[in-house]
Design a protein around this nucleic acid. Structure first.
Lengths: 348, 348
DNA sequence: CCTAGCACTCCATGCCAAAGACTGCCAATG
DNA sequence: CATTGGCAGTCTTTGGCATGGAGTGCTAGG
């Protein structure tokens, strides 16, 4: 008898077939379906025995006595990790993605947005993309703009465009001249450093050198902090309506909580937050997501890069019964194209 | 016999009651319900006669023979225009809105976003808010930033913050000095003008005066055009999941197309685009929206102001059976608070 | 003009029987 | 000893049907 871990060849094939068939039909699959549609070389009775053992091993579950089998989380996991054959993105899909992204504007937000919509459409599921982590970006320019004797705006530009704008109002009067000198000093000092390496000490050093008062120094520190912060870490999402087509969402309560999660963004972000910075695609299945509302769902998530760093994740959320191979290929292909596109628009 | 237009007092009261009751219960309302729950002073038989006449007049419809009456578009229209008594926003709702908005950040997008979520939550419907029309804003500052010998960024700041950033790459070499001179000249010339009044001729005049080459002049024109353009006219939306609670959306196909419309944004924007700039709240009911997918829905939309101008609309989309009075009060109250908040964060 | 009463229509509900889809088990088989 | 055909048993799904209830329109009488 083989242990839990090592499925013999036939069991593995049967498990793969059950998962495959269930993904395709959304119906519990029984021994007859299997023997008829797939060439197993054994009778349905034999398959029944195997199915019973797969169920005992935790790979399959039965919704009720007289129904076929459905994969469990463990079943999907084994399928994704060991049984599934990797797919490639079709050549013309790849071309289409490239074409669509080329037409998108040169602005970061719009590129991300466009990509997300595209993936939502092609995947027929919910796509979401985290915006590039600000603190991995490279500082390019700080601009202090004089607006009135007591107020101004600080604008921080990174290699991906304007990262933060921050209005400041001071008690003391501002000299336009100070703004220019301070800006110039900071630009000379900080240019091309990663935002995450820029500390208050740099600002303080420049300020004391030039005799800049504390208030203005504080305003600049504040602006840099805002630019660096992953706080407002937002995502773009698209394709929520696709989920409605899935038979598993006839239940409106489930649907409602999913929509809420999508709208909130934060929960969605947290799902993949751990993975940001990693280089490998990953799949999170059902309960592994750690949320009651999402037990019927899975997420495929792949990193995209800006320059050398993996800076964000492109993800697809769909029913646990999603076509993992196809979606992994789609996500990876798109992430690659997105990465290329981002280096196109880099401010160099 | 009174004509179509002029309902006698009793008919008007009965119509109002039917609409009111239907809004509250979502069930077709019959003559018995009316006589029992509301003090009409006549018997149900009389009410039946009146109901039949209201139906003949087009104000009510009957889903089927043995059901009660439901308002038609015309019925709702009459209710909203003539019969409904205007409501006021409760004092503590008003205070709560003010408090919540005060805590929101000082950045335009976040304020709009926050407001939208708040209205979504309080209205228990879908809220959407158009961003302020760029061309009504006032030019404050143009900043040309030198990045490399052949590239730079143009940033346009208006009274509501950064309106556009636009990367430019030129064939000829850029002198940092030219950028500064050109920026200064344009700022002196354009400051405090509404964006919509700024034409290419201003840029051309400044350029020729300073001997700025055509390429750079083009880049700046481009940046100003981007800032002024209402193209990317986007909206914020929140509360889509609330619609699921409404009994009229058990039908998933309807729901799907509504979600798609919400995600696309453009259709939603177009619904209220005509109204932008007007000063009055308005209500659009069912078929008046002009979209098959939205026949069961209505929109309440009210303007908000920035300074002197109405610059955007705050809207609530919900079932045609929505509590118009309450939502109008909520929308108006919030729009007012939003307007105040915007002048707080104006760059003066 | 109003009202009580009544016949009628249509929908919603619950129930039951029949059909269908699987399974698990058993005894027979190569 | 793994495999198989057969079969009884279990559970869900479906359709039909009768019942009850809600509401109407109409009529005749106040």
């Amino acid at each position: 008898m083989k242990g839990e871990g090592g499925l013999d060849k036939r069991k593995a094939y049967i498990l793969a077939t059950v998962v495959y068939e269930y993904i395709a039909t959304a119906e519990p699959v029984g021994s007859n379906t299997l023997t008829q549609k797939y060439n197993l070389g054994v009778s349905s009775a034999t398959v029944r025995n195997e199915l019973a053992e797969l169920e005992a091993g935790g790979y399959l579950v039965q919704p009720h006595t007289s129904a076929g089998r459905v994969p469990s989380d463990a079943g999907y996991r084994t399928y994704v990790d060991d049984l599934m054959q990797p797919e490639e993105l079709a050549g013309d899909d790849r071309r289409r993605i490239r074409d669509e992204l080329r037409d998108a504007s040169r602005e970061l937000d719009e590129i991300i947005d466009h990509t997300t919509r595209l993936v939502g459409r092609l995947s027929k599921n919910l796509a979401f993309v985290t915006k590039p982590q600000p603190d991995t970006q490279v500082f390019r320019h700080l601009q202090l703009i004089w607006l009135s004797p007591r107020s101004g705006v600080a604008i921080v530009v990174t290699s991906l465009g304007v990262a933060a704008q921050s209005l400041f109002e001071l008690a003391s009067e501002i000299h336009a001249d100070d703004l220019t000198r301070f800006s110039n000093a900071l630009n000379a000092r900080l240019s091309n450093r990663p935002l995450r390496d820029i500390g208050e000490d740099h600002v303080a050093a420049a300020a004391s050198e030039l005799g800049i008062d504390d208030e203005l120094r504080g305003a600049v520190t504040q602006a840099l902090r805002a630019a660096r912060s992953n706080e407002g870490a937002t995502i773009a999402s698209a394709g929520a309506q696709n989920l409605l087509d899935q038979p598993e969402f006839q239940d409106l309560r489930k649907l409602r909580s999913i929509l809420r999660i999508v709208e909130e963004q934060k929960t969605l972000y947290d799902l993949v937050a751990d993975a940001i910075g990693t280089e490998k695609p990953s799949v999170i299945i059902g309960q592994e997501l750690g949320l009651d509302e999402l037990t019927d769902l899975s997420v495929v998530t792949v990193p995209y890069r800006f320059g050398e760093h993996a800076v964000g994740m492109l993800s697809i959320l769909g029913p646990r019964r999603m076509p993992y191979g196809r979606l992994l290929a789609l996500a990876s292909g798109t992430a690659e194209t997105l990465s290329e596109r981002l280096s196109d628009v880099e401010l160099k």
